[in-house]
């Protein structure tokens, strides 16, 4: 059960959206093009299209999330789908229900699509490999594996600002080891054919085989790593990294890897600064940079809705024929 077979149907149409891995450049570009058409809806007085009218989308969030869940909800509602929000961390699993039972129960309620965030890597693949025909799974983040809709909204943002991917040098700074966002961004950037992807972090936060497994250049020195890059993506630093002996302190992290206005001078003059949010000001980046004119952090959030509308509508199956009831 490879990722490719699971995500695409026999006509190479999107069936589930689980990871960037296994999707080719054409498909990623189609998602970006489709997002473009949904961007305009946001500007209209009635921000709604009937694309998914009568469809039911369930948001299954096993991990807390405000931003991602909200943007998925907005995206689904703007497509006229009915939305169920299930906060699983306080319901089913605490009563001992397995993930598969949760899936079966909701399928029995004729849910057409599941948007799931889960703490275990591979959870979305697991769900997709057991879902009934006609039911689609959208990965809203699984463990440290993948967060493909975040990566696509980042790609959309980059294309919007930069136009062409091919000449770009992109640096991703922070906790690569534990980051599903970074893994998806790296795969998307490489699939879209950027010139170079760099990752910048201390050795404790970089996977052992980052270069071979992810196809990136590894830097431990921030000043060297961001030199001449066109895009800098800063990752959120989780507070628990300090207790696991991965870092000594937020202070030292900011000293060595924080993005300041001085450091920004080392990058290309028209560098774009991104962050998947939420930002720790003064830990990953200085406030002046986060709010500065290179930053597109709030655009990322806005675009996120359109990109998720595109993905939801592309992955929705036309009918629920063949579904077992």
């Amino acid at each position: 059960m490879s990722a490719v077979n699971l995500q695409l149907d026999e006509n190479n149409k999107l069936r589930h959206f689980l990871s960037i891995e296994g999707l080719n450049r054409d498909l990623l570009l189609r998602i970006l093009d489709s997002s473009e058409s949904f961007i305009n809806i946001t500007d209209r007085s009635v921000k709604k299209v009937p694309a998914l009218r009568g469809k039911v989308i369930a948001n299954l969030f096993f991990e807390n999330s405000t931003r991602t869940r909200t943007t998925f909800e907005l995206a689904a509602k703007r497509l006229s789908a009915d939305v169920l929000n299930l906060n699983i961390s306080t319901s089913a699993t605490s009563k001992g229900e397995t993930l598969l039972d949760t899936l079966r129960n909701l399928e029995a309620m004729d849910v057409d699509m599941f948007v799931m965030r889960h703490g275990d890597s591979g959870a979305a693949h697991f769900l997709a490999s057991h879902a009934n025909p006609g039911v689609s799974i959208i990965n809203a983040g699984d463990g440290q594996h993948s967060h493909p809709t975040q990566a696509m909204l980042d790609m959309y943002t980059i294309r919007r600002v930069k136009g062409d991917f091919t000449p770009l040098r992109v640096a991703i700074v922070g906790d690569i080891l534990h980051s599903r966002v970074a893994r998806s961004q790296i795969m998307a950037l490489n699939t879209l054919g950027v010139s170079e992807v760099r990752v910048i972090a201390p050795r404790t936060l970089i996977p052992s085989y980052a270069r071979e497994s992810l196809g990136v250049h590894v830097y431990h020195d921030m000043d060297q790593g961001i030199r001449d890059v066109d895009v800098i993506i800063m990752l959120r630093l989780q507070k628990e990294r300090m207790s696991g002996a991965l870092l000594p302190s937020e202070h030292e992290y900011f000293q060595c890897y924080g993005l300041t206005e001085e450091r920004l001078q080392l990058a290309a003059a028209d560098v774009t600064v991104m962050h998947p949010g939420p930002i720790n000001r003064g830990v990953e980046m200085a406030t002046a940079v986060a709010d500065g004119n290179h930053s597109v952090i709030l655009q990322q959030v806005t675009y996120g809705i359109a990109v998720r509308m595109a993905i939801l509508s592309m992955a929705m199956q036309p009918s629920s024929a063949g579904r077992e009831v």
Binding site: E21, G122, Q144, R180, R183, S208, Y209, S213
Partner: peptide
Amino acid sequence: GRVANRLGLP
């Protein structure tokens, strides 16, 4: 190793 690094498996 390479596979776990790519799949985000601890």
